[in-house]
Design a protein around this nucleic acid. Structure first.
Lengths: 218, 218, 218, 218
DNA sequence: TATGAATGAGCATTCATTCAT
DNA sequence: CATGAATGAATGCTCATTCAT
């Protein structure tokens, strides 16, 4: 975003430049394949400065993850309007999610692809964010169950699996939307709502799809 | 699986040992972090032999991807019974998919996580497999639309998005199931069917979830 | 010794703080492994100030060597009482030597261990100090030879070797005493006198230990 | 010793070449200042080969220390003739010691100067060798006390200090002899015997030099 | 007087890859 | 068919040193 200014400047600014560059490179190459040299060059600074400010490759990567995770989480929280019904809340959250991932594709790649690939300690950072989001979705599902469906007492694991699958689908869709020209965040959110919400409704009203014995659906 | 035999033996066997080892190591460490030394050692051969048979690290990784992709695709195709209704076919395909990924977790990791992380030329290999599967799912959706819903003429992009999301959810669920003890392939497939199929049905019967104007659902 | 004051203060004081810190660090880590960063931090000043006052790592180390060598030499000279007989003078000198090295172990390490390890130009600095001390000891031996033994005309090289060995033994003992709890400077000096002086006396009275032809001693 | 052969050759030979080079460089520069590049170049091999065979700089240095310590110890043991009286044994041991250190000055520097400068784990390696030698000397002193002086029951610490000082003097003399042209190992050994043995004799026959109260010696 | 900002150069270590046998 | 021997090229990281203020 804009050419990197050169010359002397305050630490905070330089640090931001470095994190910006690191997110680009880590997103493009992956943790292991990314080189501190390339990051420093893209940031427009020398390598020692990167180490002076960010300590190590590991710390730098962690800093990237945290910054991007915080930004994404904040974007989603900001997108949700608390007063609305649960389904609208979910939709708005999804829209904010897809909007943010579309605007920050490299950041999203760092979170969704690169960080999860590298075992500990990075996976743990992601797990925190993901747990947050899954909990948020789970809560929405339960609220909806209470509001709109007389609380059908869905089994714990079932709901966890559903939320997990929904989040997985959203994550997958985000990457797909980034890779597919012409897909707007609005469309992605609507698609996912269509795809998921109705199924949830059916499930909650005890019209589940039954697997082996019955011949077909409905 | 099974101790690696040493000493002279036919090329095909040796090659299989090498690919087995490579899949393990690539799955565990990622492409860049995996070392040819470790692979050769696990395969029980010397490094030059690996190069003699498989040319380079890149070729070796590509070979892994192709083998695992072919195995997975074949497993899914074998799992589907052509005569059944579309939803049953999809269910059986999912079950075969989850069964295979559960039985070959490192292979699945190579495909789902490691290969996609490394950009070209590996992403292309994955894209091929994914395209196959998405096409297969798309076809099932369309068949179902014709069979069970008088062909509601779903827009092309919509269906593509749905299939994409379904496959993404399946992929996500596969990794989640591998990481979560006690989840059987059967359960995973049923969960996903519950989650997705009903929503598809609603959509096809023109009861889509409507995003912005209406206050809530149904 | 004493907390480092911060803020503005006269150059001489700052310089002393830096040299103090440098002696600590050089003594602890050795010349090459010591870092200017650590020295500046221990001195409580910024690195550029160290360079402003002391020019370079090499100059800083040289300054340390000179200061410590001067302090040690002065301590020994101050310990010797000129009027006494030669053996008493040597004893007092040794006692002052061991006292000083016990009180300034890092300074002694810098001189005895670190400076000699680093070849030119530091070894030369040490050589100066050592030459001084060896000359001093040589003089005492010769004076004693004249006073107490009718000048037995010891060969030049022999005396040089003896003084060298005596100084070497003293140096070795100093480090040993520093590393061995419970050894006082007084004990160290007495031990060395017992060990060395009698042998010198025998030698000067022409009762040398004869190496090859005779089967045994005396 | 002799130009390093190039091209392919068995591991044992290469390893010896590398150790030879490493001893030279470590002796000349010290552990920290020595660079693996320089060692590899002097050994006539590439750096990776050094790492392949010797693992790390630390391991390489340790290997040098062990090899040189073993060689020195063996040389001294081979030089001593067990049947002779204690003083002759000590003389022969010293002569072998000075001969070896004169023939392998860099090895001696590594042991005496460089290894001791670098704290653990290298100091421990040296401590082992030194303990051996000090014990050897202590034993000779005690044997002599019994054989030639009716066992005057020297106090434990006194003897330890004496042996320590003798070994220290020998070590110091060895470095001095290496740095002083024209000094033969024979002369160095004789000098040290003259210097030390007579003093020991006086001490054991209760003619110690008495430090403070008496005016002078004898 | 004093320092925050910045870097060129070097170092230990590793890795994919190739010969000679 | 198979490997022990060997390396060019990076890579993460550190350090002595210098400006601009």
């Amino acid at each position: 975003m804009g050419a990197v200014r050169t010359g002397r400047m305050p630490r905070a600014v330089r640090e931001r430049q470095m994190l910006d560059a690191a997110v680009q490179i880590f997103g493009r190459r992956g943790y292991t394949a990314a080189s501190m040299d390339e990051i420093a060059e893209l940031a427009g600074v020398s390598k020692p400065l990167v180490y002076l400010y960010l300590n190590s490759k590991e710390d730098l990567f962690t800093a990237c993850i945290r910054r991007e995770a915080a930004a994404l989480t904040e974007a989603v929280r900001d997108g949700v309007r608390p007063g609305l019904p649960a389904d609208r809340q979910l939709y708005e959250g999804l829209r904010a999610f897809f909007t943010h991932t579309a605007r920050h594709p490299e950041g999203w790649t760092v979170l969704h692809v690169q960080a999860r690939t590298q075992g500990e300690p990075f996976a743990a950072e992601i797990a925190v964010m993901r747990t947050d989001i899954v909990a948020f979705v789970t809560e929405l599902i339960l609220v909806d169950a209470r509001e709109a469906h007389q609380d059908p007492a869905l089994p714990e694991r079932e709901v966890a699996g559903l939320a997990e699958a929904l989040v997985g689908a959203a994550e997958s869709l985000a990457s797909w939307a980034n890779a597919t020209p012409g897909v707007t965040p609005r469309q992605a959110a609507a698609t996912l709502m269509n795809f998921a919400w109705a199924g949830l409704g059916d499930l909650m009203e005890n019209r589940p799809w039954s697997p082996p014995t019955e011949p077909a659906r409905r």
